[in-house]
Design a protein around this nucleic acid. Structure first.
Lengths: 346, 346
DNA sequence: TGTTAGCACTCGGCCATCAGGAGTGCTAAT
DNA sequence: ATTAGCACTCCTGATGGCCGAGTGCTAACA
């Protein structure tokens, strides 16, 4: 088990993974020798393959079939075998063309990014909307709805509009609400929500002594409005694309995947995890006890503003994914999106 | 062709449709006599079935199979055979329970309605967000984004928040924008967008003579902001549900359907059509030259505020749908949603 | 004249069988 | 250590036969 793979085994594993990515069919020993000049006979390759199987990198679906990479095999491949090149300039241009998105809202732009990802990778694109807590305050507005209910609208520096409904016990007039809005807009602009949360807690402690009615109201409302995370949102675009993948001829499997898509919480969790990491993240198959996306891989990267990471986007497809192609695309897209949001907020 | 169906033929067609809805399998003459007391022999039923086939109400997939209703058959069934009962009180309660949605935004509520529809019907639920033009003005807000770009936020009386980005050539300060917002909020509240459009056109004609800078600005901006329809939105919930339907064992068909879902424009068109009609609408199969949803039916109803129809919701499933169950559910849901939006806006 | 029983026929679904082919593991030779 | 050879396994696809469900037709019946 602890055995290091020697050069030859690596070459052969690489061959199996890459051929399998290309063909979606179990790779036999002869196929390896035929398609790759390794200077080895099929028999030798067979021996190596038996070793690889022993070590859990590949598996054969049945006695007389070729070998298929396991999750462990893919993992080894992406971690140590694969070298991701630069995105070729032509494709860069192709991607950039999709980002001439004048006059679109931030959320539309993000959704568009998902579409582009899916179109280019021909898997599914997924984009997580900036986490509320990671955004920078730009504007807030309170509107009175029915009895005791307020609509609060929040705009982040990048122009993302979010809103929620909060409840108040003590009645308040629309006029007062405007004053509160004004006050908050003056004092909070440019702060991140994280900072604001801290500030509010501090101010509330101080405020106990003061009796400024307006100030107290403003603090109360802003606490209600800002301190609770707005449900995170996630876009999944081009899910149909992965229907084309031959692994999803299996209806049952497909259903499970689509259920996972519909529920979103699972993906959310994964994206959230990758949010914290830097650079491109790769989740392979059921590596992390999520059986719903068994047989699938997720490639993600975070996008960020100058104030740090704010969201995550990526591609989800079968484990048998063209990693070398998709990874740079995801990476580049994350950069483009970061840039886009930055420009917007200037 | 012009032949009217006699009572017996109707009974038999009804039997075929209902049994087929239940079993998803071609219905033979013996099955009809077994499951329905018609006082007829299989042979007689066979004769009638041959007639029905001749007239295009049913079809047999192959020589020695039973009969399956055609679109025309379903149409006849829903139009003249089916009598929709009231929703049974128990189910009413079941539905209502899902609508204890305090503290949710309007769009979340609508999406929730889609989920409930899908859960109860076990097909897919679909909800079209209120058309911008049909909503009633409540509040508008302009924020300056980057060079020449404005973010405009619009709140309808029912609390629906929408936003878009518009461009202006002449620069304008945030202060001026606030004045414009204030002015518009004072003068437009309570008007429907439709009315506002008219008003703006009228005012612009008059305004040529006046030289009030602010007024001119307000008119220009509000025209930009309000007069162009915001892209309509549509939620499709529980699409996976219809994967369970046996008709979608055919992969190819399923793909086409999901592509249609992803694109949304097709559904939009259909919903838009039904928007104009009153009461429950039923689209069967490819009745209206949309081949993508071949084999599917769509049941819709419009929801409305006191100011008239504002949106549409419904259920999409296989033509072989349990109409008698789904129709009252859609109907009742539309009422509930109308009510919900009404309360919110008071 | 409308209804029904009877019967021959058709066709899809299911199962077993079979040949072909791809690929393996083992052994013995290099 | 590598490789050629070989027997073996197992999937795949084609073939054919059987069964059952269901039909259409015809002739008998009320």
């Amino acid at each position: 088990m602890g055995e290091e793979l020697n050069e030859r085994s690596r070459r052969i594993l690489e061959a199996i993974v890459e051929d399998y990515i290309g063909t979606a069919e179990p790779i036999g020993s002869r196929a390896v020798t035929r398609r790759h000049q390794l200077g080895l006979s099929p028999a030798t390759v067979r021996n190596v393959m038996a070793d690889l199987e022993e070590m859990g990198y590949v598996i054969s679906p049945h006695t007389s079939a070729g070998r298929v990479p396991t999750d462990k095999g893919y993992r080894f491949y992406v971690d140590t075998l694969l070298q991701v090149g630069q995105l070729d300039p032509q494709q860069k241009i192709l991607i950039e063309q999709h980002y001439r998105l004048d006059g679109l809202r931030v959320d539309e732009r993000l959704r568009e990014a998902g579409k582009v990802l899916s179109a280019i990778s021909s898997y599914a694109g997924v984009v997580m909307i900036p986490r509320f807590t990671s955004t920078v305050f730009r504007h807030i507005e309170f509107l009175k709805l029915s009895q005791g209910k307020l609509l609060v609208i929040f705009v982040s520096r990048s122009g993302l509009v979010q809103n929620k409904v909060i409840e108040t016990e003590t009645p308040i007039s629309q006029h007062e609400l405007e004053q509160v809005s004004n006050y908050l807009n003056q004092t909070l602009t440019g702060l991140s929500i994280r900072e604001i949360k801290d500030k509010i807690i501090r101010d509330m402690a101080e405020e106990k002594s003061t009796y400024d009615q307006l100030l107290r109201r403003a603090l109360e409302l802003s606490r209600e409005a800002l301190c609770e995370e707005i449900g995170e949102q996630i876009f999944i675009e081009g899910a149909c694309n992965i229907l084309e993948q031959s692994e999803f001829k299996d209806l049952e499997r497909m259903k499970r995947l689509f259920r996972a898509f519909e529920q979103k919480s699972l993906l959310m969790e994964l994206l959230d995890k990758s949010q914290r990491a830097k650079g491109v993240q790769i989740f392979i198959g059921s590596e992390s006890e999520y059986s719903e996306i068994e047989g699938c891989s997720l490639i993600t990267a975070s996008y960020s503003s100058s104030r740090g990471t704010i969201g995550t986007l990526g591609v989800i497809g079968p484990s048998r994914m063209n990693y070398s192609q998709v990874i740079p695309v995801v990476d580049y897209t994350a950069r483009l999106v970061s840039q886009m949001l930055e420009i917007e907020s200037e």
